[in-house]
Amino acid sequence: MFGLRASVMKSAIIVPTMFSQQTRNTFILRRRWPPPLHKKGGKVPKMKGRHFVYDLVEDTSVKKKPDIRIVLNQFVEGVGTTGDVLTLHLNKAYENFILPGLAVYANPENLEKYKTYEKRPLEENTHSSPFVKRTMDCLHRLVLRVTMSNSEPWTLQPWHLKASFRKSGFVVPESAIEMPPVQIKGPDPNLLDKEFYVTVTINKKEKVHVRCRIYHWAAGQEQLPFEESYWKKPKQPLIPEQAEVLQKFPYQNE
């Protein structure tokens, strides 16, 4: 009897008294007062009210669950290519990859099945990097403002464009920029309401056209007024050969 009471006291001390409000989670419970022992293979004794008093041992919804591993079974933009193994949070992996069928569970069979794709040479893959589509989209949307002098004569060079790209937040090497077929010279007021495009090569593979507009810059009083939302307004093509391509660019709506 003493032993039993001691064990009861012990269990009562360990369990923290918390239950201040109702929470709806997966519960792991424990009897505060376990029922007495019964005969081997016999009936469980009739239980009293106190045998239904439970203490919360653990709440599994509060505990952090381990991440799960998945294998991509196709190219996913911004994530990876076939055969890439990802370690993700349970819900993200399930909802964003397993359910749409973009990935499968990383069990030994699937790892073996999609391993072959991993060894393929880079040329065979359709994309040079998982993030290249995103970069292409960003450049496609961009209306590049090329700031040139209003007083000094100039001829448009790749390094001008490189600097303009850098101002807009894109690091583009000069070698990746393909200039328009016609030389553009200035300052020239005719350039103001015109646009043209240059071609940027990403990772020596993907090519994307970028719209450019010349902006004449001058200090002090000669400064031209700033045009509000210039990227939303369509302009005339500077080079007639480029007109067809320029028509296909998207304009951000109001």
């Binding site: 008294t17 009210g49 239904f52």
Partner: peptide, 24 residues
């Protein structure tokens, strides 16, 4: 998982209170 019906003993000096543990 299922619903557990029982009691909580929230304080040693107070009477147990009925409680249902319902899964989310």
């Amino acid at each position: 998982e299922a619903v557990v019906k029982g009691f909580q003993k929230r304080d040693d000096r107070r009477r147990r209170v009925p409680h249902y543990w319902v899964p989310v």
